[in-house]
Write a protein that binds this DNA or RNA. Structure first.
Lengths: 89, 89
DNA sequence: AGGAATACCGGTATTGTTATCGCGGTACTA
DNA sequence: TAGTACCGCGATAACAATACCGGTATTCCT
């Protein structure tokens, strides 16, 4: 009943992951994951794009732990989506 | 392997839904849902809190369609979480 | 050199949840 | 009667988040 994710949607997930990865800098995965209240394995999956559409509150907690803006994050991903044929996302 | 959502987590989802509902104002569910690229049924479930932890890109598309800030949205929900015993979320 | 600790990666497995569609019901309006 | 808008419940494939396993590379200590 649910449409599987398309290629661009998975690419968008990889982009989101790379942005979070970049924001983490030199900090360890375990440190950031603990600060965000999630497991290190989940953080790794998100950063590598293996979780293409993570939950809102998960990304929110990560953004707060990393000190970055959710709007800026979404803007970059929306721009990517716009360049690949989606209206919003 | 996955822990079911707690009471406060579901309350946080209801809060998020009420904020989106408030931002929609007089516009119809169908109109906003179409603008965000999701189905009206999904929007209704999110607004009523029956989807306590929606996907990041779903909320992102809704925030853009409604003209509201994701950071402001997350801040209100994080404040709620803080008042009910969670570190972040 | 040998051993231990940290940090990241890839894959697999599992349970809970999302997002969708469908049906019927209510209220308001023309 | 017809149309619009919202609601509640049921059903289902796809996905999220977690845990566990082994593997690789680096660092540190003996």
């Amino acid at each position: 009943m649910r449409i599987p994710l398309t290629g661009p949607e998975r690419e968008r997930g990889e982009l989101l992951g790379s942005l979070l990865r970049q924001a983490r800098g030199d900090r360890s995965m375990a440190e950031v994951a603990t600060a965000a209240g999630i497991s290190a394995e989940t953080l790794r999956k998100i950063e590598t794009g293996r979780i293409p559409t993570p939950a809102f509150f998960t990304v929110s907690a990560l953004a707060e732990a990393l000190g970055i803006s959710l709007d800026a994050l979404a803007a970059v991903c929306a721009d990517h989506s716009a360049r690949h044929g989606r209206l919003a996302g």
